[in-house]
Design a protein around this nucleic acid. Structure first.
Length: 499
RNA sequence: GCCGCCUUAGCUCAGUUGGUUAGAGCGCUAGAUUGUGGAUCUAGAGGUCCCCGGUUCAACUCUGGGAGGCGGUACCA
């Protein structure tokens, strides 16, 4: 290839917001999803896989008043000019599936799903444009019992992942917030934009604190970079009402009974029918969780939980990690929520016109894994395959036979497939993290033996040896056995290293 | 989207107040060691100094624009 062609060659690069996952992380991922799956199965959810691509209208993501899809979703047109999109969550495809198979499904329908979802947004630290979710949903159950179960499922799942005492499932209800809006005099029809702004502001409470949120509720806020965010233009009385409202203590420390402490002046707001409905839901969920043996630390009422803005209609949940980890720069890393969900009673109705109650919980697998990997800082690297060295190209059949014998005994093994000499083969095995290499040159062959070199022991021995010649003469951590004992000896060696 | 910072070897980064052959560490390849990975030493390969235009005798350096990356913020089912 001449130099002139250089600029026509593509650059080998990852698409922005996407990433490669290599063996050690893949293993951790598989372990983790296995544990989640086990809990979901135990709760009685049924596995369901749906495609990564759906028709855009089925996902409900066309821009308002336009025949173009929402910018946040990856979309393209097929040859019929129909818009298709990569799924951005697992709930919208579920709604489509339920609507399509409504007649034949058992109701309530309870399924779990696991897979990659895609969002066409600016990636950030720990935020990618492809990431994994693990969802469980109950469709067709109106009872708040179904919501309570979601909280239990979430708690049990995080317990199963070894996070006992390190997480909390926070619960709130949209109906509570609806009560707040009624109290503020913001009505659904004429004030929906301000209501949205209020929700957005409250959603930032954990990051900005009350000072920042108050600014956003009022006139707006200018951040450090000089970017201006418009506020909800509430007046001072309204803002302090919001703060007082959200600071209500709904539960006492022991939660033997529900103790509602109302700050002064909230009477009118908390008397509303919709607020009482929400309060009833929260108390019901708490009672059920307590009865099922979940503690106050595991499932807690928190009126500041907002969740998504679009489709939730009742209780909402958020799983949050409560421990702090310092990043490479020594600054604490925020994980935020690693999962969430809630009741969405209108999603299937988009297709059928029939209102179908549903509630679900979703784990952000990728984010949770990032958090877990910071706790278990030392990730033990998995052993690679045993490598059978090719000492003599004329004897490849013999080497292949040895390799196959190891494989048949359930041992990961491979014959060196490159074309380099012994030294390079050793380096290769080292890089593969092989437990040992198998050597049979003419010396061993003459005696019908093989040499097994233990790379892990060898590495330890090498640490003590300064002089290379001496070390090589000693040939540490290797031994010869008769050909017939090869499999057994390798088996023993691997067993030793796996503890 | 908005604001700020950044872009020099595979990686992490020096450097040139604008001057001729652009450096280091790590990594890689090879040799010292003709059948032995990880220590040590030596050598070698590897660069359109992000791209396009402008100023200049001269641009990797100054300037204008663009792209990409990072961070904050906004949006986020």
């Amino acid at each position: 290839m001449s130099k002139a062609n250089t600029n026509t060659r593509p650059e080998a690069r990852l698409a922005k917001g996407f990433r490669d996952i290599e063996a050690p992380e893949l293993k951790a991922l598989n372990d983790m999803t296995g544990k989640i799956r086990e809990v979901y199965e135990r709760y009685g959810f049924e596995a369901l896989d749906t495609p990564a691509i759906e028709y855009t209208d089925a996902l409900g993501k066309f821009l308002p008043d336009q025949d173009r899809p929402n910018e946040g979703v990856f979309s393209f047109q097929d040859e019929d000019e129909q818009w298709m999109s990569l799924r951005y969550d697992l709930t919208a495809p579920l709604a489509r599936y339920v609507a399509q198979n409504f007649q034949t499904l058992p109701k309530p329908f309870r399924r779990y799903a696991f897979g990659n979802v895609y969002r066409n947004e600016k990636p950030g630290p720990g935020r990618f444009r492809q990431f994994m979710q693990f969802d469980a949903d109950t469709v067709g159950a109106e009872s708040v019992a179904a919501d309570a179960e979601m909280c239990m499922l979430a708690a049990d799942t995080l317990e199963a992942l070894g996070l006992r005492g390190k997480f909390v499932i926070k619960v709130n209800s949209r109906n509570i917030l609806e009560g707040l809006f009624e109290g503020l005099g913001l009505h659904l029809e004429e004030d929906w934009l301000r209501r949205l702004t209020v929700l957005r502001a409250l959603d930032k409470l954990d990051r900005l604190g009350w000072d920042g949120v108050k600014a956003l509720l009022g006139e707006g806020r200018t951040d450090e970079s000089g970017d201006r965010t418009a506020g909800a233009r509430l007046n001072v009385e309204q803002i302090s009402l919001v703060q007082a409202f959200l600071s209500q203590k709904i539960e006492d420390e022991n939660f033997d009974g529900i103790a509602v402490q109302r700050p002064y002046g909230l009477g009118a707001m908390t008397d509303s029918e919709i607020y009482q409905k929400g309060l009833g839901e929260l108390i019901d969920i708490k009672r059920r969780c307590r009865a099922a043996g979940f503690s106050n630390d595991q499932v807690r009422i928190d009126l500041t939980v907002i969740r998504g803005l679009e489709y939730y209609t009742g209780p909402v949940f958020e799983a949050e990690l409560t421990f702090e980890v310092k990043g490479d720069d020594g600054k604490p890393v925020r994980f935020g929520s690693v999962g969430g969900g809630g009741r969405y009673d209108d999603l299937v109705a988009r297709f059928t016109g029939e209102k179908v109650p549903a509630t679900g919980f979703s784990i952000g697998v990728s984010r949770l894994q990032a958090a877990l990997s910071l706790i278990n800082e030392k990730k033990t690297e998995a052993l690679g395959p045993v490598v059978v060295l090719v000492m003599d190209k004329g004897e490849i059949a013999t080497y292949q036979k040895m390799t196959q014998a190891l494989r048949n005994a359930g041992i990961r093994a491979e014959m060196y497939l490159g074309s380099s000499g012994m030294k390079a083969q050793m380096k290769y095995a080292d890089k593969r993290n092989s437990p040992c290499v198998i050597i049979q040159g003419s010396d061993e062959r003459a005696k019908s033996e093989v040499t097994i070199k233990d790379l892990i022991e060898g590495a330890k021995a090498a640490a003590a040896i300064k002089d290379n010649k001496e070390w090589k003469a000693a040939r540490p951590a290797q031994f010869s056995v008769s050909e017939s004992h090869l499999v057994q000896e390798v088996h023993n060696l691997i067993k030793r290293h796996q503890g």
